[in-house]
Nucleic acid binder design. Structure first.
Lengths: 199, 199
DNA sequence: CATTCTCTTGACCAGCTGGTCAAGAGAATG
DNA sequence: CATTCTCTTGACCAGCTGGTCAAGAGAATG
């Protein structure tokens, strides 16, 4: 008997195979692009039959969705861990920015896949929800900071979006230019976020 | 006799057909994605035979490259026009940011295609050059402002990248959320650029 | 060790892809 | 109005695409 359930119970052997497929697909998708990478290329690359792919994923689209879901979950956890135990809202923002820079420069392949996913409606709808949450998180800290008189009042959502834009664009440029994640100019980014070009 | 020259001389009739192909392809690529949109879909959509496509473009890839080239040229011109006649480096930056916001919110389809193009190496190499120039332009104004004591010294390239990130991310969110280009929060963006969240 | 369940194989398929090309229509030229 | 050049038609093609499925191998269970 066989089922097409995408998230069936897996033995440890099955879990390893699934992880292997995900890991390999991430590198191929990031290197050649989602569409130009065929399912045949993925299964050939790890030396298994085609049926293996469709045992673990109901479609190629399903695979990318899983990659995105897991990736976004991990970056969010990384941010949360960096923010926890920090009461000051400005420091929460700073820690969140630093955590994002760190994660993105360590996971440039996932970042690239997310960027692709935004350009196609099928995937973008999954990402909108995550973006709304992430921006609202930051906006909340900004409002706290305003309430505490730490910063002047302003449009928290636009400010949060700007912070997101700074973080991601610096990560993109850094990923394209410099392979070493440790050289990301985190201090300069934080300074831009806090005081803009005025410094 | 026929040639495959992609930029052959065109009669006015030919130029119109070519423009028609570009315009229609932009809407389809933006709506469904570059890869999912077939050449057949494009020619059927404007009611011509397939040979017409390959009379004007040597390949589907060539068409996207043309779209990107023309789009980036136009945004650059729009920025330059907004900056001209403004001697103050900070005002030059502000005007450039406002011009970019304006152009991007008026041309969300092209923005989306550029975002896609960044995710595939074939096209990304064309974009890197443009990004380097654009960042260097802004960085030069930043250095001028530092020299004139208008802002504190800092890493001009990271600051310029941050400005680019703010502008683009706010444009993306706005395009996704609100259809009306005139409601883009340009003042808030400029404020973030100039003084960060400190306000 | 028989039974059951998980996982794997790989041939197969219909449909679509980007791209070609010989034939010719229509406009411009002289 | 003959000639030349630009543009258009659409049938055709080889190759690849995502996905299916019957057959069976191997592991786990009892």
């Amino acid at each position: 008997m066989m089922s097409i359930a995408p998230d069936r119970k897996l033995t440890s052997r099955g879990q390893e195979r699934r992880d292997e497929l995900v890991r390999y697909a991430v590198t191929r998708f990031a290197e050649r692009g989602y569409h130009p990478t065929s399912v045949a290329e993925i299964v050939d690359g790890i030396g298994v039959g085609k049926g293996v792919f469709y045992w673990y994923f109901s479609s190629k689209e399903d695979l990318l969705r899983e990659i995105l879901r897991e990736g976004l979950l991990r970056i969010r956890r990384h941010q949360q861990a960096a923010i926890r135990n920090e009461p000051n809202p400005l420091r929460r923002i700073e820690n969140g920015v630093r955590a994002s820079l760190e994660w993105l420069s360590d996971n440039t392949e996932v970042m690239r896949l997310v960027d692709f996913a935004w350009t196609e409606d099928t995937f973008a709808s999954d990402l909108r929800r995550g973006r709304a949450i992430s921006i609202e998180d930051t906006a909340k800290h900004l409002r706290d900071a305003m309430d505490q008189g730490l910063i002047a009042p302003g449009d928290a959502v636009t400010m949060a979006t700007a912070i997101r834009g700074i973080t991601e664009e610096v990560s993109r440029l850094h990923a394209d230019t410099d392979a070493d994640p440790s050289t990301i100019p985190a201090d300069d980014v934080v300074r831009m976020v806090l005081t803009g070009i005025a410094g």
